[in-house]
Design a protein around this nucleic acid. Structure first.
Lengths: 219, 219
DNA sequence: TAAAATATTTAGACAAGCCTAAAAATATAA
DNA sequence: TTATATTTTTAGGCTTGTCTAAATATTTTA
């Protein structure tokens, strides 16, 4: 099945929204995610339904079919692999890779994704810590241990972030906290739940608002 | 100036045709290069002329303006850098990279091309031996020493090919002749101008038809 | 549960790029 | 140099994906 870039973007948006919401995805939610008008979304949804990529009943929202989901996961896979490439090989920063990956994910090829994956030595997570689906579309849903829940004196490795907004990414860059950074919790402040954390290069104080948004693997 | 992928393809086609022909490029030539009807080309040419990307007078063919040429060279630069990436990093073959590069060349970013170039360690030629324009758009027009003109007992390095058709590329792959291969001319057969050539791995007989299509740098 | 607010869909229009068929210009040949 | 052939352009139409405005459902609230 040959899909346009636009169609692929719709599937991806529905996939992400469904993942975040569990139930059917509304026209309005899609229109916000994709920055178009709701009426345009309705049009496109009908076309996707004709192609059996989404389930759709008027006024009831949409969900992906098996095929639709498969395609969406493929796009997510490509997106995350390209992000790893941009970060690890081309020296982009955490906060710069997303926009470029949005374009690269639509490159069509039977072999490119797998070759890219091999070149990157089969990464399991993208720079935001989201898991990369394998060739068959299996995706490990990552466990949500947050930095905020790490005990005093314990160490952990940063495997991702929950909020991937630009300001947050820039803030982490300033703190020199990256994917793979090892952090040790020195002390916790019961008053405001902030914590003192030792990174590779410094000791820093991190507010609860921040530590709640950093996924870690405990060591 | 933000151009569509289609517009970029027109500029690139005109650039390549102009390079091969010197004079103005005809509607029909473009339509063949780009696989559309001549009438569609006329439409698009008018739009490109409105944007000052081409010079156009009815029935007189087109040529690129300074701006049009600058953009075309940028696309060529991106195309060739991606080809190097696909060949050197992802282990694609000589004959597979073109089609993919056709897609990758349209990725939009202010920084990607330069970062890619640095990652590839500033290659000067693409896998077909065509020169890669630098950041400023300067492009070295490559000298045309063909394998056929190399003297007996002399060695040379393959820097490109003249004919980049699929069958020819496949044929060279079979002979294990690649960009950068060192070849030594053992003997030449005056009767049919074929030559006996030593590659890294074997001695092979090469017809004049082949040796006339391989660019080399004499050693 | 009826009225008001919100969400969704329909209808009609538009731009980009392509097409076919026909008209106009240019090039070729007798 | 006039007739014929070829190339190029024009005219009108189609598809994709978008939009606005209006109509219709659904949800919320009183």
């Amino acid at each position: 099945m040959k899909l346009s870039q636009t169609e692929e973007n719709y599937l991806k948006a529905i996939y992400n929204l469904a993942y975040a919401n569990a139930n059917n995805v509304s026209t309005t939610m899609i229109s916000e995610a994709i920055k178009t008008k709701a009426s345009s979304v309705t049009d496109m949804i009908k076309k996707l339904a004709d192609k059996d990529l989404v389930h759709y009943k008027k006024y009831q929202g949409v969900s992906l079919t098996k095929i639709g989901q498969k395609i969406a996961v493929e796009i997510v896979r490509k997106h995350r692999l390209w992000e790893v490439f941009l970060l690890n090989k081309l020296n982009y920063n955490w906060d710069e890779v997303h926009e470029l990956a949005e374009q690269l994910e639509h490159i069509k090829s039977d072999t490119l994704t797998d070759k890219l994956e091999a070149f990157l030595e089969f990464p399991t997570h993208d720079p935001h810590g989201d898991p990369i689906p394998d060739k068959e579309g299996n995706i490990e849903h990552h466990k949500d241990t947050m930095l905020s829940s790490v005990e005093t004196e314990k160490s952990c490795v940063v495997i991702g972030i929950k909020d991937s907004s630009d300001p947050f990414l820039k803030f982490l860059d300033k703190l020199q906290i990256q994917l793979g950074s090892t952090l040790k919790v020195i002390s916790k402040e019961p008053f405001d739940n902030s914590m003192l954390v030792k990174t590779e290069s410094a000791s820093i104080s991190i507010s609860n608002q921040i530590s709640k948004n950093i996924f870690v693997k405990k060591l």
